[in-house]
Design a protein around this nucleic acid. Structure first.
Lengths: 244, 244
DNA sequence: AGAATTAGTGTAAAAAATACACATTTAAAG
DNA sequence: CTTTAAATGTGTATTTTTTACACTAATTCT
């Protein structure tokens, strides 16, 4: 342990699964690799961790270089270090996922934006290295996070409708939800501010706009409540016929 | 990325939070450090990851060296890599937790057993490096795991009573549970085999012995059911007085 | 035989989840 | 101006789950 610097040579990276939500689809930001191996293929953005940099900082830096965004939701998920995961040597990578408001994503501000593109998560079928596994792990974590913490709002604009929120949940959980029950559940938590404004420019009855209130959430927690949307459990719950 | 071997020098370790359950107390296995820094203080067991070794393998190796046990529950939790977490240089560590049947723990088989000792988790107040933070992260993960997957059985002998199981849940969740409701919930999942045997050598009515059935759990999952004990939610649920 | 100790159970009330159908509001089309 | 299309928004009965609560049963020890 005293001879740390010569113990063995390995490389340390962070990979960042950046999620965005665009109307009806959950997206992930991929970059076209500029270097071997796998030059010119779409892959998860990642980079080395610098010696003077904490892991979270490295992940935040990757994110900022790509999107121009700071202070967005970022969370460590899992570390991948299979011996042969990188053809050029031992590379251990810490996977993070982040949630960004896709509209705030600014191509101009991003230093390597020309090589970055949003892809629908459901369309991403193969990625180099073990990136499919990393993406899956992060997606699974997101599914869990959205049920147990109010993180969905990170993916929506500050003002949103309940239908948009429901579509977001449906896209992430990959299951349809019942409109009334969803609204009842969400509104009963009392975490949203009803802005008493309406959508504009839609060709139908405009929906009410809401805003997530972090202050209300702090209070909610301090009162011992728990944010939780139940995992959909298989059950035959059809209303039974009445006997006469 | 092509010059991996010279990018920067860092050390890679795994730390393993090994949990055991002894009658009424959740325990963690600590070792007395034989080297600087923090020589002779109790710390989490950890070691370098070898160049030819996957992360899970490294964690399994640490576990086997310490306990003589193989094929026990082991799961990655989080990676800790703060720049200054180790006084001698940059050391990034992947934290795992494992669950062992404390009775199966064999001092003889463990190569460094003389320096290892079980400590009650609730008594562990300070540990070197960021080990308190690592312990806390693993304990939190255990709390979550025991509610959402049938992992509690890993900590109990193959045959156990429902009271033992309840005490285990109470120790991990750090909250008292109501006997009848706990039993009803557990038994309703149909994951246990009633061995139709009883405890022996106790000075009171002996309890029935049960066994966890992994096969039943596979079927349970395949039928779309979900293992879940609700997180205790604050609620004033006292029965209201009847009006006459 | 009786005391001590823990195991084991039944049920009513409250809360939460589920299933289901229609009226409302707006813009667009005619 | 009227009608149509499209999505919003709401109420309630049923079922399931959770919760609270108190007594009897089985065994050992004295």
């Amino acid at each position: 342990m005293t001879d740390l610097n010569n113990f063995f040579k390995s490389a340390f990276t962070v990979d960042n699964v950046i999620f965005g939500f665009d109307e009806a689809d959950l997206k992930v930001l991929l970059i076209k690799r500029g270097e071997e191996p796998y030059k010119d293929t779409w892959a998860l953005p990642g980079y080395f961790v610098y010696p003077n940099e904490n892991l979270d900082e490295a992940a935040g830096r990757v994110l900022e270089e790509l999107t121009g965004l700071r202070n967005v939701f970022l969370e460590q998920v899992k570390t991948f270090g299979a011996v042969n995961r990188h053809p050029f040597g031992r590379v251990i990578t810490v996977a993070y996922f982040s949630l960004v408001k896709i509209n705030a994503y600014n191509v101009q501000a991003a230093s390597i934006a020309s090589d970055a593109e949003w892809h629908s998560v459901s369309d991403v079928k193969d990625l180099p290295f073990d990136h499919m596994e990393i993406l899956q792990a992060c997606f699974n974590r997101l599914k869990w996070s959205i049920r147990t913490r109010p993180v969905g709002f990170e993916l929506l604009p500050p003002k949103f409708t309940l239908t948009e929120l429901q579509h977001l949940y449906e896209a992430i959980l990959e299951t349809p939800l019942e409109k009334r029950n969803f609204r009842k559940k969400i509104l009963s938590m009392n975490l949203l501010i009803d802005l008493e404004e309406s959508q504009e420019g839609v060709a139908h009855r405009p929906a009410r706009l809401y805003q997530f209130d972090p202050e209300k959430y702090r209070q909610f927690l301090s009162e011992g409540f728990i944010f939780e949307l139940k995992e959909t459990k298989k059950r035959d719950n059809r209303r039974k016929l009445q006997e006469v």
